[in-house]
């Protein structure tokens, strides 16, 4: 692989996702991250069952914290983002132009957020997997193949709105 992903940011959102935390902390997954050039992992764990702090495992520095007001800074400074399927963190990462791997929480039944991850994978903007397949996904997939996510464009919608909802022009 040509690209190096030195800094990796992992986020589970506002919920808890114990299985993802446990899976990431296994030597197997950490080693495949290391193979991709990862030196530092920043890990937002929410309410997951793990102690925040700074760890050193398999030669990777892992900074674990629970919550921050905004994870945008962490996304921006990362070379690779691994995220739960929440729409907020997915879209924020894609908009920041970061290679993104979404890990679906299979314990959440009937979770319509998977729909979004699926569609975005079909469109080639991200990859998604489950906790069981993180390691193989990291080994096999080439994140440089992902297509950049187009910027949202509300101008046509706003024009339509202005046409339907009319006001008197201000008389100055």
């Amino acid at each position: 692989m040509v690209n190096e992903y030195r800094r990796c940011f992992i986020t589970v959102g506002t919920t808890k996702f114990d299985l993802l935390v446990d899976t990431i902390m296994t030597p197997l997954v950490l080693n495949s991250l290391k193979k991709m050039g990862c030196k530092v992992v920043t890990f937002q764990i929410g309410n997951s069952n793990f102690q925040p702090g700074i760890y050193d495992k398999e030669g990777i520095q892992i900074n674990v914290y629970r919550f921050k007001d905004s994870i945008l800074d962490d996304i921006n400074s990362a070379d690779l983002v691994i995220s739960h399927a929440g729409a907020g963190s997915c879209l924020e990462s894609l908009e920041a132009g970061k290679p993104l791997l979404v890990v679906v929480n299979e314990e959440l039944m009937d979770n319509h957020q998977i729909e979004l991850a699926e569609q975005l994978q079909v469109d080639g903007h991200l990859y998604y997997c489950t906790c069981d397949t993180i390691e193989t996904t990291l080994e096999m997939l080439d994140f440089s193949m992902l297509r950049p996510f187009p910027k949202p464009d509300p101008t046509i919608f706003l024009k339509y709105l202005d046409d339907v909802l009319r006001v008197k022009p201000k008389s100055n």
Partner: peptide
């Protein structure tokens, strides 16, 4: 297309805020 023609120069607007992702959106 249920057009609205207001007599005023601005529209009184309500925004329904939900939680989490809906709010951000």
């Amino acid at each position: 297309d249920s057009r609205l023609m207001s007599e005023n120069s601005s529209l009184r607007t309500i925004l329904c805020i939900g939680s989490g992702g809906h709010t951000t959106e």
